[in-house]
Amino acid sequence: SRHTFEINGERWTVEGVSEELKEILRAAERASNDEAERLLRLALKLI
């Protein structure tokens, strides 16, 4: 499935992501810059 999210003013669209990964991306959208970066690094390990 496709998911579009915005982090630090940048929009991203990813396809074929699991519900778990979507949850991480949604958390990154709400997080501070440092926390968002940490969550994105974690998410990339899952891809």
Rank of each mutant, 00 (worst) to 15 (best):
A36N: 03
G9F: 03
V14T: 04
S32P: 15
I24A: 03
I24M: 09
V17C: 14
R30E: 11
L44C: 11
L40H: 02
A43T: 02
E19G: 07
S32F: 07
H3W: 15
G16F: 12
A27M: 13
A28W: 09
K22R: 14
N33A: 15
L25K: 00
A28E: 01
E19N: 09
H3D: 13
L39R: 01
R2G: 09
G16Y: 13
L44D: 01
R2F: 11
E23F: 10
D34L: 11
R38T: 07
T13Q: 06
V14L: 10
L25W: 03
F5Y: 09
R30Q: 12
E23N: 12
L44A: 04
G9Q: 02
L44S: 03
E20W: 11
L25S: 00
R41T: 11
I7T: 02
T4H: 11
A43V: 14
I47M: 13
R26G: 07
A28G: 02
T4F: 10
N8M: 12
L39A: 02
L46C: 09
D34I: 12
R26H: 13
L42D: 03
S1K: 11
G16L: 09
G9D: 03
R30W: 08
L40A: 02
T13N: 04
E10T: 14
W12Y: 14
G16Q: 07
A27W: 10
E10F: 11
E37G: 08
A31E: 05
S18N: 09
E23K: 09
D34V: 12
H3T: 08
L44P: 00
I47W: 07
E37P: 02
L39I: 05
A31G: 05
E35T: 06
E23G: 10
F5G: 01
E20T: 09
S1M: 13
E15L: 10
A27F: 06
L40K: 04
W12K: 00
R11D: 03
I7S: 01
A36I: 06
E29A: 09
A28S: 03
R41Y: 10
E15Q: 10
L21C: 14
E35D: 08
R38A: 10
R41G: 05
E29R: 04
R30G: 12
E20L: 08
E35N: 04
T4R: 04
A36G: 06
L42S: 03
W12C: 05
E19S: 08
L21K: 00
I7H: 02
N33I: 12
A31S: 10
L42V: 05
F5I: 06
L25P: 00
G9M: 03
L21T: 12
I47G: 03
E23H: 12
S18W: 08
K45R: 13
R41H: 09
E23C: 13
A28L: 11
R26I: 10
V17W: 07
L46D: 02
L25R: 00
G9K: 02
E23V: 10
E35S: 04
D34E: 14
L21D: 00
L25Q: 00
E6N: 07
L39V: 02
R41A: 11
E19L: 06
E10A: 08
I7L: 04
R11W: 13
R11E: 10
E37I: 13
E15P: 05
L25F: 14
I7M: 03
I7P: 01
E37C: 14
K45N: 10
L40R: 04
I7W: 04
G9P: 01
N8H: 05
I24R: 01
R30T: 11
R2S: 14
S1I: 14
E10N: 08
V14N: 01
E6W: 15
S18Y: 05
K45V: 10
L21P: 01
D34S: 11
I7E: 01
S18F: 05
V14Q: 02
I47F: 09
G9E: 02
S32E: 12
E10I: 15
H3I: 14
T13C: 13
E15F: 13
S32M: 08
A27Y: 06
E6T: 13
I7Q: 01
I7A: 01
